[in-house]
Every structure is written in structure tokens, then in C-alpha cells.
Design a protein around this nucleic acid. Structure first.
Length: 595
RNA sequence: GGGGGCGUGGUGUAGCGGUUAACAUACUGGCCUGUCAAGCCAGAGACCGCGGGUUCGAAUCCCGUCGCUCCCGCCA
């Protein structure tokens, strides 16, 4: 090695040792007659002193090095002079007196400062990701990510799980997200697909007797990106034979609790065991299937209070089957703030935002204070529990719009009123989601989760009568308003699976073509089984306190699905396409390289 | 496919109808032997993403476009 120690390990016990450090020039402080250079590697910083009396050549060399040059320093460890120790550095008790400095590689002036925690535009960070990763934030996040995956593996290995790899080149599936397709050269006109998840193969592994499987698996979905969605992402994928829903949840809950204690002990889990919330409850109270329950501000249905109102907007909504729901916030707001909230919910499809403010002196103000009758206002106040000084926000409309608009307004209010404790992790299990949802466009039922999800046993008879009311044996793990992942107990009986496919509108021929391999496997002794998959990226982001998963991915795409470091996606030579039997019928213009 | 935000020296910001386009930091040169975001002095560096329009006059207002970003649709 070109070094004897890392830049993070020298302590008082090393005093007197002759050492060689290698790393990047983090900072240089040139006093004219004395130069300090902080040498950095990912383990830390060590102060090196260059003294012209002790080593004139090294001193002169040190005057010329710039930020981020790669250097090696020979020297000896000595204690800092009295009063000169730096308590902010783990190595701050000592310093290295240089005898020689070698420049291993000079560096251009970086496009942004590596040694400061200053915000830099995302595009610039991604273009120079190797410099961004040198900075403290990305170092910390990648170290945390490693700790998370290492912990998960150790935890599951110790519980007799087998890590099995599954292919990246898979069979295309019509269900779910858009597939990334990979053309086959050997079979022109045919395509592999990158897996959206290893779902089918892990079930086949159950049939294969691998009764406890896991994999930290890359998954691919060709859909538009978001702060919490990348084209490719990483999941802990896990499946167990002979397990019931409670077993899967208990195992994962133990894993989450141990994981947090091990890698993010500064965070507190709000409630253990994790609370269970039904899908119906979550939608009713929070307007989402991934609620942030670190704060209250729950939604309340005030439909019964306004059904007979002279205020037609509310009464008509109730009459035609819509919902009128409210949130009571324990605060007063300015008109400007309320206008902003209204613009926010309108942007989500709400027709408007009604409000009532209950002043301490008993007066009632607000957009519907005059439109509603006094008893109606009193009923709303009673039902929402609004106290003196509270403001009630009301959205009326179709159930999905009310849920989205008021649910998201709830989040805005929680942040606005500073009700969210960033040091808290509010895990919960979201249970009993519907198995199917009606697809009006295609006039058929769709799987909410995926077509292998089993029904709650007592709901199975509803397959023939009322599929929309069937609850799935499925569970999502939610934390702080993010869906980390979900799973289910799978169908392992062939006839039930056939009935589900029939309900989904799949013909026998389609089933055979798409899922024949799985159904055939199930005829050879499929054990009852179930599993879960949850997002490593989202989990690490939450544990790191990051709002965007790109902060915990070494080389992410930009929001417009471009790799700014390498330039992917890029055109390929026509001859490469010809070999694959592919011709391009439409293409993006050449890179409009921005000035 | 749709809507919102942002784009000003390398970086981060200010300026929002008339400014020699400001500040911090980085960068260059000089001074300085105990600093640790070292300090002090001097200097260079921006036609304000790009294109068009309005105006006597545009970084500033309008339209288009590109890039980054947040959201809806889409996606668990």
C-alpha cells in the first residue's frame, strides 16, 4: 500500500510513529513560514504540518498543492501543542510533521467546492457525481446504505434465509408497469424484459423447496420518475413457505426495529409493535394508503351535518354520492395562507377549499360562515372537535378527489404548523386492502397488488358475487408517509388462481402464455407461502433524513430519466440495430447541449 | 401527456424596467511560524440558459425553447 494509515485513524497512542498518509488535499492553510494541509480520505481528516526548518523541500512542495490534489505524505506523529488540539476532529489530538510530500496526481479546480456543505444545482452534482460523492453528505449516505444492506443480510442469514439470485433478463409481463425491453439477437423480433420485481421466480423458488428466500434485488420500471421513484431501484425481496401473514409481518418488524437500533440509533420508532391500520380506515382518516401518522389532523366526514343544508355545494355533493370532509387545524391563518392552501388543493383537482375559523370570542369567520346555518356550523365544530382559535378546512367532491386533496392538505398543514418530529419513525402496517379494483376503461377487474395475491379466507365466496368487497391477505409497510413496500400471502391452489384470472378477464390461452410456467410449477406441490418486498432506497432515505432517493443512490438518473454523467440513453449505430432486426421509426433530436 | 418552481462570474446568492450588474466563497498574485471555514492586501472572472417579442431603454415584462426540480396522470 502507498500508505501506512488512513486519514481517520491516528490518535494519541500513535505519537512517535513514522507514518505515510495518502489522500486528497481537503484544505490548506499557508502561514508563510508554516503550512498546514488537511489530508482527507473517506475515513477522515488528518492535519499535516510543513515546517521549513524540519523539511524545506516538503515545505516548498506544500505551498504549491491545490484543493483535491492527490498527495502522499511521509512524516511522524506528534501531539498538538498545548491548547492547539481540535476537539471537532477524531484525529484532532495529534498532527503529522511532514518529512516529504509527493504529489500523486494534481487536480483541476473542481466545479464546486468539495469541502463545504453548500447546496449545488442537481444537474451539476450529477454531471460531476464523482466529486459530489467525495462530499460529506453523499459519503455519509452511502456509508449508511452499506450499513443497511449489510445488516439486512446478516439478520436474514442468521434466520436461515437463503440469498438466491434471479435473472435480469426475464420474460415480459403485461401486468403492472411498463417493461424495459431488451431485444434478442439470437431470436430477432423477440424481447427479454428487465424484471419489475422477481415476483414469479421467488414463488417458483418456494415450489423448489427454498423455503426461506431473500435477495437484495434490482428492479426496473419504465415509468415517469419522482422524488421517491427511479427507473431502477433496489428492493429487499423475501419469501417464506409455510408462513402466514402475521409471520411475515413479525419477521420484518423485528428486522426494522433491529435495523434502526443498529444503523440509526438517533431515531425513535413511534410505536412497537407497529400499529395495524386497515386500508378503509386509512383512506377515511388520512385520505391515503400511506399516511404519515407522526401528527394528527385527521379527516372527518361532515356529510351528515350538511346533507340537508341550504348551501347547495355541500348538499348536492352528498346527494350525488360525493363526500364532504373536514380537517380541524389548531391555528389561525392569514388570508394569504388560506389562498395558498386553496390553490394547492385546486391543483390536485378539488373544486375549492371552504374554511371556518372559530375565534376565541365566539365569532365564526370563513368562506362558508354565512352560507351555512348556525346549527350546521355547530355540528361541524362538534364533529371535528375544533376548539377556540381553530380553523376547519373543508373539501367537497368525489371520494377520490376529496381523499387526495384533503389528505395532501393535511400533510401541508402538518409541516406548516411544525407538528412533525423529524427524529421519529412512524411505522405502520396497512392491512386488508381490496383484492380488486374496477377498471372502468377496460370494463373488468384489476388486481390491486398482483394476481397471485390471496383473499382473506372468509371473503373467498365473494369471488362470484361481489369481487370489489374482497379483502386481500396483503400488507404494506408504511413509514412517515412513504410506502416502503408490501407483500401478501400468495394463492397456492390452482383452482382459486384460475378463478382470479377469469375475473381479471384473462382467457385460458392468455393465462397459459403469460403464466403457464408458474401454474405448471404449482401442480407439482406448491407449499402455502407468502412474502414481501420493500424499497432499500426509500428506507435509507428516511433513515438518512433525505427527502429524495437520489441522495442515497450513487449514480441516479435525473428526473427526466437521463444519466448526466454518462449521457445515457444514447443513439446506437445502425448496424447494431440491424443485427437485432430493429429499425427506429421515431427519435429524439440530437442532444441539445445546453450553453 | 398536463401543471407549478428555478436558471445572474466556477459555486451559492442579491438585484426584478434606466446600476460601472452587488455579496460570499472558489480562482490568481503578494504578505504572514500555530492555523483548523486561518488572516490581511491586490487582481482576474458574468454580454444575466438559448431564441424571439414589447419598450426610447430588458437580467428585470411577454411568448417559445432547453436544462434541473416538485406534483398530477402513470407507477406500488
Amino acid at each position: 500500500m502507498l500508505r501506512t494509515h488512513t486519514c481517520g485513524e491516528l490518535r494519541a497512542e500513535h505519537v512517535g510513529a513514522t507514518v505515510t498518509l495518502a489522500g486528497w488535499v481537503h484544505r490548506r492553510r499557508d502561514h508563510g513560514g508554516l503550512v498546514f494541509v488537511d489530508v482527507r480520505d473517506r475515513n477522515g481528516l488528518t492535519q499535516v504540518v510543513f515546517d521549513p526548518d524540519a523539511a524545506p523541500a516538503a515545505f516548498e512542495a506544500a505551498r504549491d498543492v491545490g484543493h483535491e490534489w492527490v498527495v502522499a505524505v511521509d512524516g511522524s506523529v506528534r501531539p498538538r501543542p498545548a491548547g492547539q488540539a481540535n476537539p471537532n476532529l477524531p484525529t484532532g489530538a495529534v498532527e503529522v510533521v511532514a518529512s516529504a510530500l509527493r504529489v500523486l496526481n494534481p487536480a483541476r479546480t473542481p466545479p464546486f467546492e468539495i469541502n463545504r456543505e453548500q447546496a449545488v444545482e442537481d444537474g451539476t452534482r450529477l454531471r460531476y457525481r464523482y466529486l459530489d460523492i467525495r462530499r460529506q453528505r453523499m459519503q455519509r449516505n452511502l456509508v449508511l446504505r452499506h450499513a443497511v444492506t449489510a445488516f439486512i443480510r446478516a439478520h436474514l442469514n442468521a434466520r436461515d434465509f437463503l440469498d438466491v439470485e434471479t435473472p435480469i433478463l426475464m420474460k415480459a409481463t403485461p401486468e403492472g408497469a411498463r417493461d424495459f425491453l431488451v431485444p434478442s439477437r439470437v431470436h430477432p423480433g423477440r424481447f427479454y424484459a428487465l424484471p419489475q420485481s422477481p415476483q414469479q421466480l421467488k414463488q417458483i423458488l418456494m415450489v423448489a423447496g427454498i423455503d426461506r428466500y431473500y435477495q437484495i434485488a434490482r428492479c426496473f420500471r419504465d415509468e415517469d420518475l419522482r422524488a421517491d421513484r427511479e427507473l431502477e431501484f433496489t428492493q429487499l425481496d423475501l419469501e417464506m413457505a409455510f408462513a402466514e401473514a402475521g409471520d411475515i409481518m413479525a419477521l420484518n418488524e423485528d428486522l426494522f426495529v433491529a435495523l434502526v437500533a443498529a444503523v440509526a440509533p438517533q431515531l425513535r420508532i413511534r410505536q412497537v409493535p407497529f400499529p395495524h391500520l386497515t386500508y378503509a380506515d386509512a383512506m377515511e382518516r388520512y385520505g391515503t394508503d400511506k399516511p404519515d401518522i407522526r401528527f394528527g389532523l385527521e379527516m372527518v366526514d361532515i356529510g351528515p351535518d350538511v346533507a340537508g343544508s341550504a348551501f347547495r355545494v355541500f348538499a348536492d355533493t352528498v346527494a350525488r354520492g360525493g363526500r364532504v370532509k373536514a380537517i380541524a387545524a389548531p391555528a389561525q391563518f392569514t388570508r394569504r395562507e388560506i389562498d395558498a392552501f386553496e390553490a394547492f388543493v385546486k391543483g390536485l383537482g378539488a373544486a375549492g377549499l371552504a374554511w371556518l375559523a372559530f375565534d376565541a370570542d365566539g365569532a365564526v369567520r370563513g368562506s362558508v360562515a354565512r352560507a351555512l346555518a348556525a346549527p350546521e356550523i355547530a355540528a361541524i365544530r362538534d364533529r371535528t372537535g375544533a376548539g377556540d382559535g381553530a380553523t376547519v378546512f373543508i373539501v367537497a367532491g368525489d371520494a377520490p378527489v376529496v381523499a387526495l386533496a384533503l389528505g395532501r392538505l393535511r400533510g401541508e398543514l402538518g409541516r406548516h404548523l411544525d407538528l412533525i418530529d423529524p427524529g421519529e419513525l412512524a411505522f405502520l402496517w396497512l392491512v386488508d386492502p381490496p383484492l380488486f379494483e374496477w377498471n372502468a376503461g377496460e370494463a373488468r377487474w384489476d388486481s390491486v397488488h398482483h394476481p397471485f395475491t390471496s383473499a382473506v379466507p372468509e371473503d373467498v365466496p365473494l369471488l362470484d358475487t361481489d369481487p370489489g368487497r374482497i379483502r386481500a391477505q396483503a400488507y404494506d409497510v408504511v413509514c412517515n408517509g412513504y410506502e416502503l413496500g408490501g407483500g401478501s400471502i400468495r394463492i397456492h391452489e390452482r383452482d382459486v388462481q384460475a378463478r382470479v384470472f377469469a375475473l381479471l378477464g384473462l382467457s385460458d390461452a392468455q393465462v397459459q402464455a403469460q403464466f403457464g410456467h408458474l401454474l405448471t410449477a404449482f401442480e407439482f406441490g406448491a407449499p402455502p407461502h407468502g412474502g414481501i418486498a420493500w424499497g432499500i432506497d426509500r428506507t435509507v432515505a428516511i433513515l438518512a433524513g433525505e427527502a429524495n432517493i437520489r441522495e442515497v443512490i450513487a449514480f441516479p438518473k435525473s428526473l427526466s430519466a437521463v444519466d448526466l454523467l454518462t449521457g445515457a440513453p444514447s443513439p446506437v449505430p445502425a448496424r447494431d440495430l440491424a443485427v437485432l432486426g430493429i429499425s427506429v421509426v421515431a427519435s429524439s433530436p440530437p442532444d441539445a447541449t445546453d450553453a
